[in-house]
Amino acid sequence: MDVTHLVPETLPLPELDLTGYGFGQPQSSGAMTMLPLFSSDSHDQFVPPLSGLKLSKVEGYGNVELYNPSDSGIAIVPLHIGYIQDQAQNHALCRTAFISAGQKLMFRDACCVQESQGGYLEGREQWFFILPLPLRENALALRGTEGYSKLWSDISILNNQFGYQDRGHLEQIIGGQRSYLTQYQNRFELLPRQTGALFFDREKLIGVEIAPNPDYFKELWMGLLCFCYGVEAMYQERHLSVENSAQTKFSAASLDQLKVQLQERRKEKLKDIAEMLIYTSDENFQMEEEERFLSLRLYTITGERFVGQIVKDGERLVYASVFAKGRYLRKPVT
């Protein structure tokens, strides 16, 4: 797919230098639009998060150990990764981190997301998700803070918004609504060689997700789309009216003219996306370095409307998970 002609002139956020990235055709379903990203660089030294990153053990509630079993690849732990297993308390991490080949890394600031379930996660049957978008701002703020129940109050609020019992039991959403959420991945199509995506709630940018390489993004995709953005989409569709903006109707006199009009309309849609980006392009981020690994740098970036973590190798962006803050997420675009 030739995506070079689709590159909008405006880049989303100044600290996220997307030079070298191509944009695919936007995909929309309900309130959500996903703009696929393609990188011309391939950072193949980074292992994908499902096959290349394993949950090693849980050492008491709130302490999760991950393991990079590869011989040479570096693991970038996806921000807000969570693990689900039957008969064990599900946990999620508050931050990303580097794990070198063969290394085990204990996260003592992990949070339990399943208040009413006992038992420890084991290294079997690993199935991961990314925390729902509305929880991510506070989860990131709690990085470095020990205490397995620290996210329960936020989970309770989210449960309450969905009309569920207000307890720190995320399973009510990600387990109870599994059917809706897993089917959500059919509403957006991962494209060949796709390495990232921008997510929009109608006209508003709400997330920038960039992976080091296509294999990484492919393995991240379901957990990210279904459980991070899918939960927000489910809330929007069930609790807010979702109306897609009307598109220009055709006035062609022949099939040939219609083809032309169809292409023009699609270009218009891209322009609309570019305008959405302009709207969010004046964000000023504060960057806080968290960790180094050889030439790699992990930063937490905080702006007025967005927050997240990114990994850079020199000036080149390697990984990013930057998302709308809670107040901005539910605030209508003016």
Binding site: Q27, S29, N186, K249, F250, L255, L262, R266
Partner: peptide, 24 residues
């Protein structure tokens, strides 16, 4: 189709709705 018109959502509906105008 499986019914998921993820890219260019709405285009199919609009093209089909247009056809009678062009006497197709």
């Amino acid at each position: 189709s499986d019914g998921y018109e993820n890219s260019f959502a709405g285009d199919l509906k609009d093209v089909v709705a247009y056809l009678p105008q062009a006497d197709i």
